[in-house]
Amino acid sequence: MAHLLVDRISKQYGNHIALKDVSFEIPKGKIFGLLGPNGAGKTSTIRMLTRILYPDSGEILFENEPLADRHVRSMGYLPEERGLYKKMGVSEQLIYLAQLKGMSKSDAIREINHWFDRLEVDHWKKKKVEDLSKGMQQKIQFISTVLHRPNFLILDEPFSGFDPVNAEKIKSEVIRLKEEGATILLSTHRMESVEELCDNICMIHQAQKILDGSVRDIRESMKEGLVQVRHKEPLEERPMKDMLAEYIDGKTEAGAYVSRFRLAPYADTNALIQWLLNHVTLISFEEALPSIHDIFVKLVSQDVSSFHAKEKDATQL
């Protein structure tokens, strides 16, 4: 069942089209990736989901009802443009933000203690936000988003500002929230986290949807006959490009050689294996699915020139 359904929404600022007929649905209890280059329309989409902006046309349904303020009030929202009151104490500020979400003060304090334990930040409670480092502030910001136990979360670039260790910690918290039943919309351009986290994605480019579906289906459908081979000896010869397979690249990895090939049209994987067996000792042979990153770059760079022109417009709002 769709937790949130976006049906053909469009948005225009003056002459600039921010979003055109974009539709997608976010299944309940899944992590949904909203992907796209800067200025593609991600932030506009999210601002319409949080009713900061309204679509010019189209409809948004939340649990089968037209999206209303009360739905938004229950969401947890971590905007890309985020910050905290610098002069306020950490606890005090979290209580304030939780109260605005409709939580009672005592509930807020209980949840704050819980999260401070989880993220090992207990000793910051009394500090002012301005005395914390950027990464610490990001943690507080993350806590403020999930404090009121939302069942629908919008996380816009949640890992920016974290070092790799803390990014992993937040990542595992996101997965835990999903396991506890929350639906999560994740907007990012860090593609490696998409493959790890997302069940479904929607890719927006130049205000339009260019791709959506489950991550596995998308990778499957975008495969281009790439194979990855691990072998013991270096490869001294290349297979015949037109008849068999094109050699793409190679590297060494943990004492073995890893080569990638693109099969020639109508060529047989068995034929390639046969050829390889004559030259090297095979360790493994597998079909290489394109990464989401590869797909993203490929789709987005198809229209590079017009994309740059758009990026300038997009900074207007």
Binding site: T50, D69, V72, Y85, L100, K101, S144, T145
Partner: peptide, 17 residues
Amino acid sequence: IEEKSNRIVEVILSSVR
């Protein structure tokens, strides 16, 4: 101006008008 340049305003706007 403080709320705007702190960028806290969008967080708050998901809770209030």
